[in-house]
Design a protein around this nucleic acid. Structure first.
Lengths: 135, 135
DNA sequence: GCTTGACTTGGAGTTCACACCAAGTGTTAT
DNA sequence: ATAACACTTGGTGTGAACTCCAAGTCAAGC
């Protein structure tokens, strides 16, 4: 499979795929006799895996480390496991942080709903100045 | 309150605070007679709000727009509300995406646990080559 | 009244994660 | 066999979000 097809499959640009390979975000891809990249199914799995992990915000640093250990073989199982655990916990705390923000946005939405209703009722004494309670 | 104290309070650098103000991420801060920034409680609330929103990944573009509308007064209530709704939904979908990745990492952890146990049992015929099922 | 240290502005520099480009090679269809 | 097109590398460019710097101002302590 050539680079263009992989790009279509995962909605990435060739530049991004080559970049990922260059920095070790995916293992080196085999080449045809003339030097063109020829992706097999395992390469595709890596691309998909990395795309998923990146979309959730996992760092390139961790991912390259993981790939490096993976390529070194089974002696690195424990190291890889602890890396994954670390990143999972990081992801959980980022999600918790986002939940806090989400709750806050939801409260804000409620507040805006009430405010809008209030404003609709007082179409006369409005001075147009912002109300600090809206923050 | 001077800039240094606000920085301590929210663990930001003066450069970041000035940057936020310059691009409109927080409303302009009042100054002392000699031109130094003098933050009041409302300014601090803005800083905290923005820090929270940024930590969850909300875009600077949205936040500056929100601040701009806020400063224009009550006529922008509905616009602000719909901006907030939009960002909230965006946040929800990012969290869902992260949940998918989290599930995947959790499955990976389980798999690694089993693999490690397996490897401990076969301390003899290991060839050290990576097992593609580990990906 | 002079040093010390925090603040000011405008502008330049940095890092990250790509995105783009040029020059060259390879492949395919007519 | 030649046009059209995909791919290669190495290097440069870009935008976002800071981060740092220089030159100058200002207030407080000794």
């Amino acid at each position: 499979m050539n680079i263009a097809e992989v790009c279509r499959r995962y909605a990435l640009t060739p530049d991004t795929l080559r970049y990922y390979e260059r920095i070790g975000l995916i293992p080196p891809v085999k080449r045809t006799a003339s030097g063109l990249r020829d992706y097999d199914e395992e390469d595709c799995k890596w691309v998909e895996f990395i795309k998923c992990m990146r979309s959730a915000g996992l760092s390139i640093e961790f991912l390259t480390e993981y790939v490096k250990l993976f390529m070194q073989g089974d002696d690195t199982l424990l190291q890889r496991k602890s890396l994954i655990l670390e990143q999972r916990d990081l992801l959980v705390s980022r999600m918790e942080e986002m939940q806090v923000t989400l709750d806050r946005l939801n409260r804000k939405v409620e507040r805006y709903e009430k405010l809008v209703v209030g404003k609709e009722k007082e179409l006369r004494r409005s001075d147009g100045k912002p109300d600090p309670s809206e923050l």
